[in-house]
Simulated scan of single mutants.
Amino acid sequence: MGADLDVVYAREEPPDRWEAAVFLAGPTPRSPEVASWRPAAVAALRERWRGHGRLVVFVPEHRHGVHDDYVGQVEWEERCLHLSDEVIFYVPRDLATMPAFTTNVEWGMWHDSGRAVFGAPPQAPKNRYLLHYAAKSGVPTAGDLPATVAAALDRIGAGASRTGGEREIPLLLWREESLQRWYAGQRAAGNALLGARVVFRFGNHWGLHVRMHVAAERRVKDNEVVFGRPDVSAVVLHRPGETLDETEVVLVREFRSPCVNGFVHELPGGSGAGAPSEVALGEVEEETGLVLDAARLRAHGTRQVNATMSGHRAHLFSARITGGELARLRSSGPHGLAADGERTYVEIAAFGRIRRERLVDWSCLGMIAEVLLEVR
């Protein structure tokens, strides 16, 4: 499919499929005698778009210059801002003809969305505050319109084909492996994404308010947020005792803000690049100081950790450790990756104590029980 560009003006209905979408945010002239900057932006996008497929450009100006429904205009802009992969803020502010008061509000709402680029001529007044927050939020900036457009298209790349409710997932999230894995599972079950709204994104963690058609029940469910993050690998390091309750398990204690008492006991584990088993070995060394040979690692399968809230999974492994290793672990100091603010302390407890004293949460307890029941 060749490159194509569709312009959608105010109050017009967006197409049902595209590879990328941008919104041209910024001041609109108050008088027909003042030329809009947006036609030049559309021309620059048309010239520079190198993706294979459709680029949709949302222009919040009426095709025929008629603005007759303020509330409808605002609602259309809100909808199309959320549909956009990139929001191009270009602010050639003129206090007499284009004061950009509404633009200031929109910038405040979108500057830290991960989807904004900002441009303004050097002589445009009253943009210092906006530029300050562009720098603080890592927003690409430029001093002219062509460079601003180029910054947006650089992040879009070739785009990605989306249709229906998929259009509401912006490229910055669409490209996340964890999102694609969750969505592939939904499609395999016959379910359809009717709508979505990004509620937060922090690094590779995200939250998406979704509207799903549930095929098996022939109904629509729209009252849940799906949380996502990369999969984790967790390892049960154990030393068998005479009974199941006397089997000793290596835990790590670490401060975690969501934990109601601050510190949580959990299994060595985490996420990272590489195969799950490689991640498992690396996390054991990082959080306990124990270096394991890959041949000692036993796989126990993969499951979601909290299927009512998060789409991520845990890859479960175990290793039987020696008495000497257990003794060294008992006397080891704090570990963790300091650059990530991580500090872990090794604590060893018998399975019976773990259960009685409720040292771990339900998901961790289940992983420990799965391993110990399987290896005995």
Rank of each mutant, 00 (worst) to 15 (best):
L5C: 10
V7C: 09
E12N: 09
E13H: 12
D16T: 14
D16E: 12
W18E: 08
A21Q: 10
V22M: 09
T28V: 12
P29D: 02
P29L: 04
S36G: 06
R38Y: 09
L45V: 05
W49E: 10
R50D: 12
G51R: 08
V59D: 11
P60Q: 10
R63A: 11
V66F: 11
V66Q: 15
Y70Q: 10
Q73V: 11
E78N: 14
L81C: 01
L83H: 02
E86K: 13
I88D: 04
Y90P: 07
P92H: 07
R93T: 12
D94Q: 03
A96H: 13
M98S: 11
T103K: 07
G108M: 05
G114E: 03
R128W: 09
L131G: 09
H132G: 00
Y133W: 15
A135E: 14
S137Q: 09
G138N: 03
G138Y: 01
V139E: 04
T141R: 06
G143E: 14
G143T: 14
A150S: 11
A150Q: 14
A151H: 13
A152V: 06
D154E: 15
G159V: 00
A160L: 10
R162N: 04
T163W: 11
G165Q: 05
R167V: 06
R167W: 04
E168H: 09
I169H: 03
P170K: 01
L172S: 13
L173V: 12
S178D: 13
S178L: 08
L179R: 03
R181Y: 13
Y183K: 06
Y183P: 01
A188V: 03
A188K: 12
A189G: 11
L193H: 06
F202I: 11
F202W: 08
G203T: 01
N204H: 01
N204Y: 00
H205V: 11
W206D: 01
R211E: 14
M212N: 06
M212E: 11
V214A: 03
A215C: 05
R219A: 09
V220N: 07
D222Q: 10
E224D: 13
E224C: 09
G228P: 12
G228T: 11
G228C: 12
S233M: 04
V236M: 04
G241A: 05
L244A: 06
E246Y: 01
V249G: 06
L251R: 00
R253K: 15
F255V: 05
F255S: 02
G262D: 08
G262S: 03
V264S: 12
L267Y: 00
G269D: 07
G270M: 00
S271K: 07
P276V: 06
E278D: 15
V284R: 01
G289T: 05
G289Y: 02
A294L: 15
A295H: 14
R298P: 01
A299K: 00
G301L: 08
R303A: 08
Q304S: 07
T308Q: 10
R313H: 02
A314N: 08
A319H: 05
T322A: 08
G323A: 15
L326M: 11
L326I: 01
L337K: 00
A339M: 05
A339T: 12
G341I: 02
R343T: 15
Y345F: 15
F351P: 02
G352K: 06
R355K: 15
R356Y: 01
C364I: 15
C364M: 12
G366V: 00
V371M: 01
L373T: 08
V375P: 08
V375Q: 07
R376G: 14
R376A: 14
